[in-house]
Amino acid sequence: FHATEKTAAEAVARLTRRLGAEPTAGPPASSAAAAARPAPGCAEHLAAGIRQVESYFAGETTAFTLPLDWSLITGFNRRVLRELAAHVPYGTVVGYQDLADRVGEPGAARAVGVAMGSNPLPVVVPCHRVVESGGGIGGFGGGLETKRALLALEGVLPQPLF
């Protein structure tokens, strides 16, 4: 969300270090036409993801049915994000502390905030649905206006007047 060119480049560099390979359009190939094709199965997954995200933003989809690859996230962050994805449905919110309690880590509300910041799949793994226990909106890596817009799309907050 709203990433500058520098931020996007840093994210790609982190993933490259983590995965041990540069991003490509597919496996190495002997011809330019073959090199332009995505890896087998990749195009179908990407097309399904695009359709579901577009449908979500059109207000038509309320649950993503995409197979998720959790390999880029581990430990506490993984447990928190999996709980969020599986058990905080469209149109609802959960508090940071409640989410910490759900994964068996009472008192780890701040760590839940860190987990939200490590989310590699925002919107699909709905970190915008995590709010402060006292009623505040909390933070969001995509910016608070984006978080408000996502919560308004889901009917949690009123739509902006302007």
Rank of each mutant, 00 (worst) to 15 (best):
H2F: 09
E10L: 14
V12R: 07
R14W: 08
R14L: 09
R17Q: 13
L19W: 09
L19Y: 14
L19I: 06
T24Q: 13
P28S: 07
A29K: 02
A29G: 08
S31T: 15
A32I: 11
R37W: 05
A39V: 01
A43G: 00
H45A: 12
L46N: 05
A48S: 12
G49R: 06
I50A: 12
A58F: 01
E60A: 14
T65E: 15
T65I: 08
T65F: 14
L68R: 14
L68K: 12
L68E: 09
D69L: 03
S71W: 11
G75K: 06
F76D: 02
R79Y: 05
L81T: 02
R82E: 14
E83M: 07
A85C: 04
A86P: 06
H87L: 00
V88L: 05
Y90W: 15
T92G: 09
Y96Q: 02
R102D: 10
E105F: 01
P106M: 04
G107R: 00
G107M: 03
G107S: 04
A111W: 03
A111R: 12
G113E: 06
M116N: 13
N119V: 02
N119D: 09
P122Q: 11
V125M: 03
R129D: 06
R129M: 10
E132I: 02
S133A: 15
S133G: 12
G135S: 01
G141S: 10
T146D: 07
L151E: 00
A152V: 04
V156Q: 09
V156E: 06
P158W: 11
